[in-house]
């Protein structure tokens, strides 16, 4: 029991890195995804094709490869661009590259969710808004967006949890600097020390589970707030889909 508590304490600093990666990439990815989803639904064929292609490419390839690709690209620009500007320490740092790639990745998945919700916004409401003489910005702000976010929220919750799970591979692709280790690297190093796979990996899994449940709880609260005008709050299903 004491061993288990010690183990929990050992992993506590590590989970901060996973939470950092998720927390840094979710807000930016959210905003980026809105533009991507609107781009995909855009009437202009150029914008629509570009967003469609971006979403397809980043949903159709492994995050692991995306990490390696972006990191090696950043490395190849190092001598020419970053070094003269004195930015290498920042641009090549995992704490920057990690969220960058996660943003690129989650934006594509989130955009697909938002695009689906955008198409499910009731036509009649948009037509009514147009009949009232609302400008396009007003239509989006007052009619489309509130509908969209309510429709997309349950799926978006799953995406956030998935993104948190995806933070597990950040340090398998990027260099570990000093004591900056996330849950997986901590578990792996402890395993290599005493070969106790069951203890170390289970504790890491427990942390992942615990944070996922907290995310579900918080996003459930937001969902209830979003749906407060509805007669019977449907509530976010506690058994989540976990599938992208």
């Amino acid at each position: 029991m004491e061993r288990f508590l010690d183990e929990l304490a050992l992993f506590a600093p590590a989970v901060v890195f996973n939470i950092y990666f998720a927390a840094a990439s979710i807000p930016i990815g959210f905003v980026f995804a809105i533009f991507l989803a609107l781009g995909k639904a855009s009437a202009s064929p150029l914008i629509s094709r570009l967003s469609r292609g971006y979403i397809y490419a980043f949903r159709g390839s492994p995050l692991f490869i995306q990490f390696f690709m972006v990191y090696s690209l950043a490395l190849s620009f190092n001598v020419g661009v970053w070094k003269p500007m004195g930015l290498s320490w920042f641009v090549l740092h995992p704490l920057f590259i990690g969220p960058l790639v996660l943003v690129l990745n989650t934006a594509a998945y989130t955009a697909e969710i938002f695009y689906g919700a955008l198409r499910a916004v009731p036509r009649g409401e948009v037509e009514a808004a147009r009949a009232y003489g609302m400008s396009r910005v007003q239509q989006f702000r007052h009619v489309i967006w509130p509908n969209l976010i309510r429709l997309a929220w349950p799926a978006y919750t799953n995406e956030v949890v998935f993104l948190f799970h995806a933070t597990a591979i950040v340090y398998f692709a990027l260099p570990v600097i000093g004591q900056q280790k996330d849950l997986m690297i901590t578990a792996k190093e402890l395993f290599e020390r005493d070969y106790n796979a069951f203890l170390h990996f289970s504790v890491a899994a427990l942390y992942f589970l615990a944070v996922s449940l907290v995310v579900f709880f918080l996003f459930g609260l937001v969902y209830r707030r979003l749906m407060r005008h509805m007669p019977a709050a449907p509530g976010l299903r506690f058994a989540p889909k976990w599938l992208r």
Binding site: H165, A166, A168, I169, F172, M184, A187, K188, F191, Y195, A197, F198, F201, A204, A205, F208, L209, S212, A239, W242, L243
Partner: peptide
Amino acid sequence: SSIVRGVPDVLFFLFFPLAFEQ
């Protein structure tokens, strides 16, 4: 089905072969 989906795939992917070998 709920536990395996609740943890990252990488974790299980690493854990299972190591645990099986042991």
